[in-house]
């Protein structure tokens, strides 16, 4: 099947029902997207499909055909980080950072919908992403910084 990943046409020879996560990681080497639970309960595997956040671990590769898939690797343009990544870099909120890709992808989705979210709106939008190191208050601050960076661009 042919997938569109980070703006590039990628041909893969897999069965349609295998997860998009497996295809990204094992077929295409895009390992920035993480496995955390396999049931869409932790957010570590979050990618964008046609601009919307989805759990790639419970999304079949076949259902992604003909759609635009964006992963963490697709955010940086010409060596310049996406403003949300830049905010994560500046405010250094995380510990082990295994959740980082999913957090960044979910935060971008939120900010695309709501350019100045309140704390409560951030909590509601991000609640599907687990940071087991427990850095949630730092991540809320980081998303507010990201909103500032985006709004002042």
């Amino acid at each position: 099947m042919v997938l569109t990943i980070n703006g590039k046409r990628r041909e893969v020879y897999v069965s349609a029902e295998i997860s998009l996560l497996n295809v990204l990681r094992d077929e295409l080497g895009l390992t920035g997207t993480k496995y955390g639970c396999g049931e869409g309960a932790c957010g570590a595997c979050t990618v964008h499909i046609d601009g919307k956040p989805v759990h790639s671990c419970i999304t079949s590769a076949g259902s992604s055909v003909g759609k635009a898939v964006v992963t963490i690797e697709g955010l940086e343009k010409n060596g310049v980080l996406h403003p949300v990544q830049e905010a994560f870099l500046q405010s250094d909120p995380l510990q082990c950072s295994y959740c980082a890709s999913g957090m960044v992808m979910s935060a971008i989705s939120l900010l695309n919908q709501n350019s100045s979210p309140s704390d409560a709106e951030i909590v509601a939008a991000m609640n599907g992403n687990i940071c087991r190191c427990g850095t949630y208050p730092n991540i809320i601050k980081t998303i507010k910084l990201a909103a500032n960076l985006l709004n002042n661009k």
Binding site: R25, G32, E73, L81, S97
Partner: peptide, 21 residues
């Protein structure tokens, strides 16, 4: 001081063992 290899984590570039090939 910021996490010394912080950038590699937020770009997805860092290879955890589960990412290695």
């Amino acid at each position: 001081m910021p996490k010394v290899n912080g950038r590699s984590f937020i770009t997805g570039e860092h290879k955890y063992v589960s990412d290695m090939v």
